[in-house]
C-alpha cells in the first residue's frame, strides 16, 4: 500500500528521489523566459509596429536590412526559441487542465510537433537567409545589394 506523508512532513530520503523535477524546472522556465520575452517582444513590437510608419514599412527589404545586423539576428533567434517553448509549455498546462485520455495525448503531440517544427524552420530561415537573392529586382531588395550598385 502506498503511504502518503502527513502534511508539512520534512523532505526525507523516503520522499526524495534522484529524478529531475521537470515540473519545477518548467515552472522556473516560464518565469525566467517570461522576463526575457517582455524585453524581446516589446522591443520587437516597438521597432516593427511603432517606429516610423509602423507595419506599413515592413517588406522584404525591411527584414533584410534588420538581419544585416547580427544584433537583430541573435534577438530574433532568441525570441523564436524562448517564445515557442514558453507558448508550448503554456499550451501543455491548458491541455492538461481540460483534455483527458487519448484526446489529451493527441493534442500534446500536436503542440510538441508544432513547436519543434517551427523552431527548426525558423532557425534554418534565420541562419541561411540571403538578403540579395539571385534574380530579385533591385527595388525589392536592400540598397546594399549588388543589383543596386550598377
Amino acid at each position: 500500500m502506498t503511504t502518503i506523508d502527513a502534511p508539512r512532513s520534512p523532505h526525507t530520503p523516503a520522499t526524495a528521489t534522484r529524478k529531475v523535477n521537470w515540473e519545477k524546472w518548467g515552472w522556473i522556465y516560464m518565469r525566467a523566459s517570461g522576463i526575457l520575452l517582455v524585453v524581446l517582444i516589446f522591443g520587437h513590437l516597438f521597432v516593427n509596429l511603432f517606429l516610423g510608419t509602423g507595419v506599413r514599412a515592413i517588406d522584404f527589404a525591411f527584414v533584410a536590412g534588420k538581419w544585416a545586423s547580427p544584433f537583430w539576428k541573435v534577438w530574433d533567434v532568441a525570441m523564436l526559441w524562448l517564445a515557442l517553448i514558453h507558448g508550448g509549455n503554456g499550451m501543455r498546462t491548458v491541455i492538461n487542465d481540460y483534455a483527458h485520455g487519448r484526446g489529451r495525448t493527441v493534442l500534446l503531440v500536436l503542440v510538441a510537433a508544432s513547436v519543434i517544427g517551427l523552431i527548426v524552420l525558423g532557425t534554418l530561415v534565420l541562419t541561411t537567409f540571403d538578403p540579395c537573392p539571385a534574380g530579385a529586382p533591385g527595388n525589392l531588395v536592400p540598397s546594399f545589394c549588388p543589383v543596386n550598385s550598377k
Partner: peptide, 30 residues
Amino acid sequence: GVAIFFFLLVHVLDTSLVRITPEGYNAVIN
C-alpha cells in the same frame, strides 16, 4: 496566452517566406 500562441505559429510561417522569394513575402505581409 492561447491566442498569442496561435498567432506565433502563423507569424513564424509568414516570416519564413523571406527564404523563398521577396515577392511572396511582400504579398503576404501586405
